[in-house]
């Protein structure tokens, strides 16, 4: 197991009280696994990604433990995490295109970044150049300012930079969202290639676009309102999901070849609950077509089949 997250709880501190953004998130990622993290906006997927690398105010660590390569990650202590960040855990942020310092040439910026971590730039330079070549960037970019690059090129530079020290865990937050479809495919496939070449051991790909995950992810964790709803291999989540939320979510996606006049799709009525004062029990019960009395208690996130975890009373009842 590369990454184990157990019962992670992170709240946002606000003047009105604590927003329970993550409540009891539990999952494992195996070595070499690309896990997709999917869900609607506000379900806590980005919060989860950032909590694993940079947990700062207003985010507040409440409880849980995170183990990477059998080492406990001190995610509650931003200072101690410094030793792991970039070396063990790395991130490609959502704003990758504006992540670079506009006043430095890319080569110089990389030098400063590496030396601030106590690594000699010249030791890394040949590998850096090799990887730039791998993503089809000319070596001239080292002497260029970020403004001289196109959006897709900046994205690639940031991807190479983030993975330069071969981290164990890479968090890719909505890396394909702002790109055109053709660039999207190339970036997504590059993520897979980084894994094949063992630049990164395992990966969490955060996106709202499940069809991208179908192309590249080995497994998918679906979150709803700060809680995990279902985790299984990609094909199981797409073709035979168990949680009612996953089912409705998958069936609401227009597939190519579906026209409203032949097959009218429907959305999920209602809105996700506010997490400032979330409902007790299952957080999906108000929108769930299959809700019954037991849903007023919180369903456990348990394994119903090999590698398939669900948080739903209907399913856990069947297999208990």
């Amino acid at each position: 197991m590369s990454l184990q997250v157990e019962n992670l709880r992170v709240h946002y501190q606000t003047l009105q009280g604590n927003v329970q953004a993550l409540e009891g998130v539990t999952f494992n990622i195996a070595d070499g696994e690309i896990m997709g993290l999917a869900g609607e906006s506000g379900c806590g997927k980005t919060t989860l990604g950032y909590s694993l690398i940079h947990l700062t105010l207003p985010k507040k660590f409440i409880g849980g433990c995170v183990t990477l390569d059998s080492q406990l990650l001190p995610i509650w202590d931003a200072e101690k995490m410094q030793a792991y960040r970039f070396k063990k855990v790395s991130i490609i942020p959502q704003y990758a295109m504006s992540a670079m310092n506009p006043t430095r040439k890319i080569g110089r910026m990389t030098l400063e970044l590496l030396e601030s971590r106590g690594i000699r730039f010249n030791d890394i330079l040949p590998e850096f150049k090799r990887r730039l070549e791998l993503v089809k960037l000319p070596q001239d970019v080292l002497n260029m300012y970020p403004i001289e690059l196109s959006g897709g090129m900046k994205q690639r530079v940031v991807m190479v930079l983030s993975t330069l020290l071969n981290p164990s865990l890479l968090i890719a937050d909505e890396v394909t969202s702002a790109l055109d479809v053709s660039t999207q495919q190339a970036v997504a496939e590059m993520l897979v290639e980084f894994r094949e070449r063992e630049f990164v051991k395992s990966m969490i790909v955060i996106t709202h676009d499940i069809s991208i995950l179908y192309q590249i992810a080995d497994s998918i964790l679906v979150m709803y309102a700060g809680r995990p709803a279902e985790k299984a291999s990609t094909s199981v989540i797409i073709n035979s999901p168990l949680h009612p939320y996953t089912r409705l979510l998958i069936s609401s996606l227009p597939k190519s070849g579906v026209k409203y006049s032949n097959q009218r799709l429907s959305g999920i009525p209602g809105n996700p609950p506010l997490l400032l004062d979330p409902p007790t029990g299952c957080r999906f019960k108000d929108r769930c077509p299959a809700a019954f009395a037991k849903c007023s208690q919180e369903p456990p996130f348990i394994e119903v089949k090999q590698g398939h975890q669900v948080a739903c009373w209907k399913e856990s009842g069947k297999h208990a």
Binding site: V181, S182, Q184, A188, I210, Y214, Q215, K255
Partner: peptide
């Protein structure tokens, strides 16, 4: 290159 749910790239 459009990501689809019924077909891999």
């Amino acid at each position: 290159s459009v990501p689809r749910l019924d077909k891999k790239w």
